[in-house]
């Protein structure tokens, strides 16, 4: 019964997505071209990979507000490193970015799981701390395109069979963590903890591990995303990815992830990401002022959360009341 409804929610999202594509495509045929499709994919790739990490955090009834700052801090760190030590091979830089992200995410995770500080507080704090360090290590300076080598800048662009590295990484992230969440024991435990923490403890789930893991994974992903971000936009600055965390959370919410944890699917998140990404691209295609973009995003999120709530209520009404007898 519940399974059906969850599927239905993604179905609704898919239908609205397809109709959006058709409507925009009718008005502007270029929208449907392969070139534009590739643009959309590349534009949403960063959002997609980071959203998967955020999705895991929200699943355990957490939230990660440090995403934007984390992206900026890793991006700035590796950009500076690359600028001062151009000899470091690119693959080492890639590993370093994941390592830095891992450390940032682990710091969040340890505060949440060991010290039991609520995630919203932890990441509100680390958002400030990480963002502050971006300014501190860079001295407020930018690292711009001419300070980056071609190899560095081409990292997200290169690829094979017309698929960019950036998109490849995003697809890999989605597949790997999608499988992890759905089919591994740890993945199911993440759902369980978000659904009912107390019950999960009683059945012997290691709460400390499950509450740490999503933050660590989210951090490692946004570390890599930080590198790809500064390489793609060919600049690292103090306000890189400022406010990105809210776009990421919005993508999850639009994808039907419950903000209270325990429910949501990888497919839903991907659709949520695509929805926001396609809207942005579509606006420019049908020549609506880009200034409308943010308002439209807001409206989509609003509609999505209302639909989610109404649907959830309809199914839960029966379940919870049956429980109350």
């Amino acid at each position: 019964m519940l399974e059906k409804v969850v599927k239905k929610r993604e179905f609704i999202l898919l239908v609205s997505l397809v109709s959006l594509i058709v409507i925009v495509g009718l008005r502007s045929p270029r929208f449907l071209s392969i070139g534009n499709f590739r643009d959309i994919m590349d534009d949403t790739a960063l959002l997609a990979m980071v959203a998967i990490g955020q999705f895991m955090v929200i699943l355990i009834a957490g939230i990660d507000l440090s995403v934007g700052a984390g992206v900026a801090l890793t991006g700035m760190s590796v950009a500076l490193l690359h600028q001062y030590y151009p000899g470091i091979p690119i693959f080492v830089i890639v590993l370093l970015s994941i390592l830095i992200g891992f450390l940032l995410g682990s710091f969040n995770g340890i505060l949440v799981s060991l010290l039991r500080i609520p995630p919203i507080i932890v990441t509100l704090a680390t958002m400030g701390i990480y963002r502050g360090f971006v300014a501190l290590i860079s001295g407020g300076r930018w690292v711009s395109a001419h300070e980056m080598s071609d190899a560095f800048r081409n990292l997200p662009r290169g690829g094979f069979l017309g698929v960019s590295n950036l998109l490849l990484v995003a697809i890999l992230c989605v597949i790997i963590f999608g499988i992890f969440l759905k089919y591994t024991r740890t993945g199911r435990e993440i759902y369980a903890v978000g659904g009912n923490e107390i019950a999960s403890r009683y059945v012997g789930i290691n709460l400390k591990k499950i509450k740490y893991l999503p933050f660590m994974i989210a951090g490692s992903i946004y570390g890599l995303a930080g590198l790809l971000w500064v390489a793609r936009y060919a600049s690292a600055q103090s306000d890189t990815a400022m406010g990105f965390e809210l776009v990421v959370i919005a993508a999850c919410v639009v994808g039907g992830v419950s903000i209270f944890g325990g429910s949501g699917t990888t497919l839903g998140v991907v659709l949520g990401v695509l929805f926001l990404g396609i809207i942005n691209n579509a606006l420019t295609q049908v020549k609506v002022s880009p200034f409308w973009q943010m308002a439209l995003q807001g409206l989509i999120i609003l509609v999505a959360v209302i639909v989610n709530t109404v649907m959830e209520k309809r199914t839960q009404k029966l379940v919870t009341k049956r429980r109350n007898l």
Binding site: L246, Q293, A295
Partner: peptide, 27 residues
């Protein structure tokens, strides 16, 4: 009235309200 969590509604508001400001004023 609808029972949407406050964090979700105001997250939408975060984009929507400033978004309308952008739509009205542009740059």
């Amino acid at each position: 009235k609808i029972g949407v969590p406050a964090i979700a509604v105001t997250l939408a508001g975060f984009f929507l309200f400033r978004g309308i400001a952008y739509a009205m004023l542009g740059d």
